[in-house]
């Protein structure tokens, strides 16, 4: 007979906002149903409101784990990218969100947890064991990350410098990283606005890159960040 395989929830001792913020958070049926409703609703509403044009959809892997990275100009970015993925993956897709924006107030933290499945990360000073936990999720778990290496929304719409955290997650792993470029989100919902204007938005998804031969150290991480930034830049210039 199989050895005992069930274990207490990893976030069992955590409560309230601490639990929403935790990277080891585990949800059950209720959150899964909430996400199903949210993503299905979004999949209907987004194309009605925005004119979405997606190219490179064929690059999306058929199964987790993988990482989507993109330029960041708007709250729409993560929603649009997540809505391109299968609804069946809703509990595995983790948009990585800034702790200070989404996880300060109880209500927004609960929303980010229950509906978006967002992971809280401190943008200024991500702790090593947080990054280790995220790396563990990618390598052992079946996780899909939606990540914005710029660290915050661009206030001008231009591509900013990339943080090297993305390198720490994927260096020396076989996890594919897909660069994406979103155009039009800045015009539809720039930072500081709350009303989304109906605009044409184009999403370009690049081919998957792997970094299994890239050293897992500072220079390796910087190389990865630079390479991915170049890739996003290349996508943005492509017609």
């Amino acid at each position: 007979m199989t050895d005992w395989i069930f274990h207490t929830a990893r976030d069992f001792e955590l409560h309230g906002i601490e639990r929403h913020r935790s990277l080891v958070r585990e949800n059950g049926l209720a959150a899964s149903v909430a996400r199903l409703c949210w993503w299905c609703g979004l999949r209907v509403v987004l194309p009605l409101w925005l004119q979405l044009r997606v190219t490179g959809r064929e690059h999306l892997p058929t199964k987790p784990p993988f990482v989507l990275i993109a330029n960041h100009t708007s709250h729409l970015d993560a929603l649009i990218l997540a809505s391109l993925l299968r609804a069946a993956w809703r509990d595995q897709v983790f948009p990585v969100a800034a702790s200070d924006t989404f996880f300060e107030k109880r209500l927004s933290a609960a929303f980010a947890d229950w509906f978006l499945n967002a992971l809280a990360i401190r943008r200024c000073c991500a702790r090593t064991h947080d990054l280790d936990e995220m790396r563990r999720k990618l390598t052992t778990g079946e996780a899909i990350f939606i990540l914005f290496p710029e660290g915050s929304r661009s206030r001008t719409g231009e591509l900013q410098a990339f943080h090297s955290g993305i390198g720490r997650l994927v260096a020396q792993t076989n996890v594919p990283v897909l660069s994406c470029h979103l155009d039009g989100c800045f015009r539809a919902l720039p930072p500081g606005r709350w009303l989304c204007k109906p605009r044409r938005i184009s999403v370009k998804i690049g081919p998957p890159l792997r970094f299994d031969d890239c050293p897992n150290n500072r220079s390796g991480w910087d190389t990865i960040a630079a390479q991915l930034r170049g890739e996003v830049k290349r996508l943005s210039n492509r017609a």
Binding site: H7, A9, E26
Partner: peptide
């Protein structure tokens, strides 16, 4: 009960 025993993972 489900969160304590881990059965909550079986949706």
């Amino acid at each position: 009960f489900a969160r304590a025993t881990g059965i909550f993972r079986e949706k």
